[in-house]
Computed example of a mutant assay.
Amino acid sequence: MVELKHIKVGEDKFKISDDEVARRELKITKIDEDVIQVQEEVHGIIAAIGGVSSVNIKKEELKEIIKIAKEEFGWTDLC
């Protein structure tokens, strides 16, 4: 079994209204030898439950995800 290691890739704050600021974190976790999980947590927004989920990834965050997958998780065949 793989030891779960959560690595924070990105963090943002953005204004929703005059008195509310949301916080966003993007994390990557190695689930198995060939599986990673990218998780986006957004705090401060009332969310509706639906059947679709998505993760917003910035270009710099994607570069960091690829770097982590190679260096931390040993995925040497990424290009």
Rank of each mutant, 00 (worst) to 15 (best):
G44D: 15
V2E: 10
G74W: 03
G50N: 10
L4I: 09
D12I: 05
L62P: 02
G50V: 00
G51C: 08
T76A: 05
E64V: 01
W75V: 02
I31L: 12
I66R: 04
T29P: 01
I7F: 14
K8M: 11
L4K: 12
M1A: 11
K63R: 10
K59S: 11
E61S: 04
S17W: 05
I31D: 01
L4W: 01
E33C: 02
F14H: 15
I28A: 01
I66L: 09
G50K: 05
S53G: 08
A48Q: 03
I68M: 09
E41L: 04
K13Y: 15
S53K: 03
L62W: 10
I7N: 08
I45F: 05
E11K: 15
I16C: 06
I57A: 04
L78V: 08
D12M: 06
Q37I: 02
A69C: 12
V2C: 09
D77Q: 11
V55D: 06
E60A: 11
E25Y: 13
E41G: 02
D18T: 11
I57G: 07
K58S: 08
V2W: 09
E41I: 15
L62G: 02
E3P: 02
K5H: 09
V35T: 03
F14E: 05
N56G: 10
K5V: 14
H6E: 15
K13Q: 14
I45G: 06
I65Q: 06
K5W: 04
V55I: 11
K15W: 11
S53A: 08
E25D: 15
L4N: 06
G44S: 12
F73Y: 14
K8T: 09
K70W: 00
I7H: 13
T76I: 00
D18I: 06
D18M: 06
T76P: 01
E3S: 07
Q37P: 03
H6T: 14
